[in-house]
Amino acid sequence: MRRHLLMRLRAPLVAFGGEAIDNYGVIRDFPALSMVTGLIGNALGWERSEFALLDGLQARLVMGTRLDDGGERLVDFQTAQLGANDAGWTTLGEPEKRRGGDVSYKSPHLRYRDYHARLDALVALRLEPADEEPTLETIAHALDHPQRPLLIGRKPCLPSGRLLIGIVDADDVLNALQLAPVSDQREFRFQWPLKEGTLKNARALDVCDERNWKTGVHGGWRAVFEGTGPHIAPADLSTLPELPA
């Protein structure tokens, strides 16, 4: 049995970002490894420039997700009129400015951003190796006492409740997701890493969700399974402690 941290990602708007194309910000059904890495790093107070810390944490994370409520998708159409001295914010360290001369300022700045509305996702994760810092206990404390506001994908995506559920002992990531408490008994959608459990009729696929934190480019691939299956009622929840709010 190995220890897994359980974290709930729930908000009125959630953005599990995918590959951005031009001015279209698309989303995926499940959170990316890089998104969870960034969320934890933000809770710990790490800066975006601390590449070694973020790369190291991402390499140690073994995680999967259970969708308790897939919500629904919506598209936010964003428009702003930018003048010659105005600029759009980016993550590249440089402001985004208009190009093309004076005529370009007559057209608005357009973007499309997809969101999940009312999505509720349960994440189970462990660290390999487990005894290096940050440990699961360090991360658990940071989620309850974050150094900065926590976001689930994008700036508007503020959690609607406590992220941390607790720590549970389980054979693997899928087992941890199946043991986590639920509000009703039914089939759930899961995504979990290769060799971290099995479900009938699961499909195998590769996801590009690992980030090179120095260059800001996603290029690493993970082998995962996706499938549906039941919740397993745990015999003992003593490993899910009540942690201070």
Rank of each mutant, 00 (worst) to 15 (best):
A80Q: 11
A80C: 08
A80W: 11
Q81K: 10
G83P: 08
A84Q: 13
A84Y: 13
D86Y: 01
A87W: 06
A87R: 14
A87E: 07
A87C: 10
A87I: 10
A87H: 09
G88S: 12
G88H: 05
W89N: 15
W89T: 15
T90A: 10
T90Q: 14
T90D: 08
L92I: 01
P95T: 11
P95I: 04
E96L: 15
K97N: 04
R98S: 03
R99W: 13
R99V: 14
G101K: 04
G101S: 06
D102S: 08
D102C: 00
V103E: 15
V103Y: 07
S104Q: 03
S104R: 00
Y105E: 01
Y105Q: 03
S107W: 14
S107Y: 14
H109M: 13
R113Y: 04
D114K: 02
Y115C: 01
Y115A: 06
H116P: 08
H116E: 01
A117D: 02
R118M: 13
R118T: 10
R118K: 12
R118E: 14
L119A: 15
A121M: 03
L125P: 04
R126L: 09
R126V: 03
R126D: 11
P129T: 03
P129R: 09
D131Q: 13
D131I: 04
D131L: 05
E132H: 13
E133I: 04
T135L: 01
T135Q: 06
I139C: 03
A142H: 06
A142L: 04
L143C: 06
D144C: 11
H145E: 13
P146K: 05
R148N: 14
P149L: 08
L150Q: 12
L150I: 12
L150H: 09
L151Y: 14
I152P: 08
I152T: 00
R154L: 01
R154A: 09
R154S: 05
K155G: 00
P156M: 00
P156S: 00
P156R: 05
L158S: 03
P159F: 07
L163H: 08
L163R: 01
L164C: 11
L164M: 12
I165R: 15
I165P: 11
I167W: 12
